[in-house]
């Protein structure tokens, strides 16, 4: 950025390393995509170059849409992800603001407690949790996931937002308070609009985790059409000891796509959100 830059120099400094990273990070996706475009018989044909598609087919995608409930899974995953992201965000905003700005009894203790929630792996929780879910009558409903996912999201999101809120100058809030605004009004009218990048980061983070979750989705909501994408794909594309690689990879590609698009729109905010939140927090 400083001094003269020739194209050669830029190539060496930027584009070469960038190419390395693109290959390293994207090769598996390239692989998944070409596998999804090959007929099954070609996949394990040793005489073909595996890095290229010899005989192109959309059969795997057709199978996905005609023989499985893929569109249904997408709908389920969307509903669950969107609603639990909203719930997590609301909870995290409140917690983040309380921890960042308010002094109240037990705040230290609660802050640490919420942070510790990081350390509890779902593999340890899901059996007792299943009992809770059934007792509350949530089994095999959207609520089973909508209410449990936030427990995985709130700790990170509120911590991130707390950091973000702290970067907002206190003076702004103080002058608003002097004008007679209540705390909640300040939160809604002043703090939140100033925190859009932080909210976006937390939101995208939450949405991604919901979209990807496997274990809870498998156990709390996998009957019939109530499956999410990862669970549906795995149970419909793997039959006994035979894997339908083509369709499996086709659904992996389609399942990853929405997330990738989401990121390409918001990645700028995501990074700046992390900058102010996680970084300075």
């Amino acid at each position: 950025m400083v001094g003269g830059e020739t194209l050669g120099r830029r190539t060496l400094d930027i584009y070469l390393p960038l190419a390395f990273y693109l290959v390293f990070l994207l090769f598996p996706f390239y692989w998944m995509s070409i596998v999804s475009l090959k007929p099954t018989n070609d996949l394990f044909e040793m005489k073909y170059n595996p890095f290229w598609v010899q005989r192109f087919t959309l059969e795997n995608y057709r199978y996905l849409f005609e023989n499985t409930a893929f569109p249904e899974w997408v709908k389920n995953t969307l509903i669950v992800s969107v609603v639990s992201t909203i719930i997590s965000l609301v909870c995290s905003i409140l917690i983040g603001y309380a921890l960042a700005r308010l002094r109240f009894p037990g705040s230290n203790f609660l802050g640490v407690g919420i942070f510790l929630a990081y350390l509890v792996p779902p593999t340890l929780l899901f059996l007792p949790l299943a009992q809770v879910i059934v007792k509350l009558g949530l089994y095999n409903t959207y609520w089973a996931l909508i209410l449990t996912y936030p427990t995985q999201l709130i700790p990170f999101a509120s911590w991130l937002l707390m950091g973000y809120f702290r970067t907002i100058p206190k003076e702004i809030e103080e002058s608003a308070m002097a004008d007679g605004c209540s705390r909640l009004q300040i939160l809604v009218r002043i703090v939140l609009p100033l925190s859009i990048p932080g909210l976006l980061s937390a939101g995208i983070f939450s949405f991604t985790l919901c979209w990807n979750e496997f274990l809870y989705a498998l156990i709390f909501m996998s009957s019939g059409p109530m499956k999410t994408i990862p669970v549906g794909v795995v149970s419909d594309m793997i039959k006994a000891d035979t894997l339908f690689w083509g369709s499996l990879m086709a659904s992996a590609v389609l399942g990853s796509f929405p997330i990738a698009i989401l990121y390409s729109f918001f990645v700028k905010h995501y990074v700046s959100g992390l900058t102010a939140g996680a970084v300075k927090g």
Partner: peptide, 13 residues
């Protein structure tokens, strides 16, 4: 966005 892919797509897939 592209380089974020490994981190953001479902691990199961």
């Amino acid at each position: 966005a592209a380089v974020m892919m490994p981190w953001i797509v479902p691990t199961a897939l």
